[in-house]
Write a protein that binds this DNA or RNA. Structure first.
Ligand SMILES: [Mn+2]
Ligand SMILES: [Mn+2]
Ligand SMILES: [Zn+2]
Ligand SMILES: [Zn+2]
Lengths: 151, 151
DNA sequence: ACTGTTTTTGAGAATCATTATCAGAAAAAC
DNA sequence: GTTTTTCTGATAATGATTCTCAAAAACAGT
């Protein structure tokens, strides 16, 4: 597999953009994060390496990382956009607990294939599939029940 | 089928809430909208009936309509939350063109069933399933290609 | 290395959908 | 009608994201 930084460099060059120090640091940082992340979390990770990179640059760079195929948009939680690395990631969906915001990842090959077919059938050039199941996890459900019974 | 206003009244009573004039107007208004809507669009529809209802009340009432089962959260487009009526609506998914923001609705019984099973298997109390396919529609694709060729 | 050109950046302001606040109005209870 | 509870409109606040712009960095040619 191609190294992330090479893939990014290639993308940048193809689009007349430059591989700068902040951009390199950002790529190195997303590789350190092996879970979902939002702009703020990534920013914290970046600051471990270099305090001078600005949050604005983080926001500016995310779309580039996505277009370059390094990251992809994931779910949205608590009004924040979340991302995850596209590297070595199988397509999957997210179940989000609306109470504790726990995320559970699940695979569904069948859904993914069906959805890809649907895009094709509708002359849609697929960029991203997002499946989110909102609900309440077992733990929270139980806690809520207990509280109910107290009253 | 139960009338929307009755369903809402019932929900309100069960939760020690009151059926007020603004709330009644809002329910009447969502029934006039037979497509997806965001807070702003609903607010415009409401103003046709009564100019005095405030946007704050629209935002305040949406969660109630959802909990009462009249509306449900749909997709998010251009940084805005979109809703649609739950009445007579089959479960379906949305394909959104990232360029012209056109929405195409498709049904996928198979996906929905699979996802419900998954929620169950993970001890998740399902509140809402959201499937969004992001991409570029055929029309926009063609236009973009033409522009590319001009350069 | 020097110089002009293009792209990028950090800092901070601006945007804008959504929430929170709060004093006055409505609705239910008495 | 009076009291109690819940709602509401107006408006301020919030907060994630985007925009602006002058200064800095990267590049290309010499
Ligand atoms: Mn994931
Ligand atoms: Mn729909
Ligand atoms: Zn939970
Ligand atoms: Zn389009």
């Amino acid at each position: 597999m191609e190294k992330a930084i090479d893939k990014f460099t290639k993308y940048l060059r193809e689009n007349h953009m430059r591989l700068t120090k902040p951009r390199r640091i950002i790529v190195e940082s997303i590789l350190e994060i092996n879970k979902h992340f939002n702009a703020e979390l990534l920013y914290e990770e970046i600051k471990k390496r270099d305090k001078s990179v600005s949050l604005a640059t983080v926001y500016r760079t995310m779309p580039l990382l996505i277009k370059a195929g390094l990251s992809k948009q994931s779910f949205r939680c608590s009004s924040k956009d979340n991302y995850e690395n596209a590297y070595n990631e199988e397509k999957h969906l997210h179940m989000i607990c609306g109470v504790c915001h726990k995320i559970v990842e699940v695979n569904s090959e069948i859904c993914m294939i069906k959805l890809q077919e649907m895009a094709q059938a509708n002359d849609f050039t697929l960029k991203n599939i997002n499946i989110t199941i909102n609900g309440i996890c077992g733990d929270c459900k139980r806690k809520l029940k207990e509280e109910d019974e107290k009253i």
